[in-house]
Amino acid sequence: MSVLLVIPARYASTRYPGKPLVPLRGATGEAKSLVRRSWEAAMAVAGVDRVVVATEDERICAHAMSFGAEVVMTSDLHRNGTERCAEVLDALGGYDLVVNLQGDAPLTPAWFVEDLVTGLGLVPDMQVATPVLRMDGAALAGFREDRRMGRVGGTTAVFGVDGRALYFSKEVIPYTGRDYVSGEVTPVFHHVGVYAYRPEALLSYGRWEPGPLETLEGLEQLRFLENGTPLLCVEVDSRGREFWELNNPSDSPKIEAMMATMGLA
């Protein structure tokens, strides 16, 4: 099975313009851009045949090529990373699976992606898959605090007994009616913003217009559900490692602290 991994890296972000070029300092104090750290995370994934950075911006292109990344220039009209991945697949073709490792998640462990690809491969009738991470009490409290403060933090996912996604939201779902202590297992799942697509599903996505739920939530994966394409949630194990995406400028110090704690250079 041939796997193409795409890192969408958009300069003209509404919430955080120029985000892919933001420097992040690791445990040694060395600063590397967000897109470089995401590329390094992608290169650590086993079983991937090709890794490309997909961008609409010449500055990101030049920077990515400077550290050895392959770059595919894409349209500046794409509304999200999945649309950008669809253009890359249309240009390159010839792959059994396409993985979207979003360029704002440099802390994504390699095994998240490896388990995702394996999970989708085990369910032939599923067209799309995404990882979910069960939260403990501390993580859930952090999500709730973000919502109380009006911050757009992580996304939560709910799914059926067969793993098929029921819904994704920037609100904390499901409602639990109680608090949990740090380390306590909760029934709430953090959606990890990585996707694996079969080619036919990805190319179909590029032809659909955003629906009302996608528009309200600002979550690209809801377009699949709104168009009747089931999406498989694959539970992954953190193995004690912290995970977070760079959603807002205030997330940079948090991610740098996590890298320092984990000893990531």
Rank of each mutant, 00 (worst) to 15 (best):
I255Y: 05
T82P: 03
R151F: 11
K19T: 07
G68H: 12
R10C: 12
T229C: 12
P17Y: 10
V194P: 00
A54H: 09
R198Q: 00
G68M: 13
P23Q: 08
P199Y: 00
L246H: 09
G160F: 02
S204H: 10
Y205R: 09
E200W: 12
V172T: 13
L203E: 00
A196S: 04
G211W: 06
E171F: 02
E114L: 03
R239P: 01
V185I: 12
Y11I: 04
T82C: 05
V35Q: 03
D125I: 03
T74V: 15
T118R: 14
Y16V: 11
W39N: 02
L203Q: 00
E200A: 14
G94V: 01
V53E: 05
S33N: 04
T108R: 07
G119V: 12
P174T: 06
V192T: 03
V234M: 05
G183S: 08
W208H: 09
T215V: 13
Q102T: 11
K32P: 03
F112E: 05
R37W: 10
G137K: 13
N227V: 05
V98E: 00
A105G: 13
Q221C: 12
A201K: 01
D104H: 15
E209W: 13
F67Y: 15
G121I: 03
K19L: 14
I255C: 12
E83C: 00
W208V: 06
N80F: 03
V128F: 06
I173S: 03
A110L: 07
L219K: 08
A91M: 14
R151I: 06
V172S: 02
S13G: 12
L92V: 01
E114K: 01
P20F: 13
F189M: 15
A41N: 01
E245D: 13
V113G: 01
T186S: 07
P17K: 09
R25H: 07
Y197M: 01
G154K: 12
G142N: 12
G183D: 06
M259S: 10
L34I: 14
R15C: 08
V185R: 15
L133R: 14
P109M: 13
G163P: 05
G154H: 14
I60N: 02
P174S: 04
L140D: 03
T186C: 05
E242T: 08
R84E: 14
E220Y: 06
I173M: 15
S182Q: 11
D162T: 11
L120N: 06
A265T: 14
T130I: 09
M135P: 02
E209D: 15
V48G: 00
E214Y: 04
G121M: 08
D96A: 04
S66P: 06
M149S: 14
V71L: 09
T55R: 02
G177Q: 08
R37T: 04
E200P: 01
A27W: 04
D136H: 07
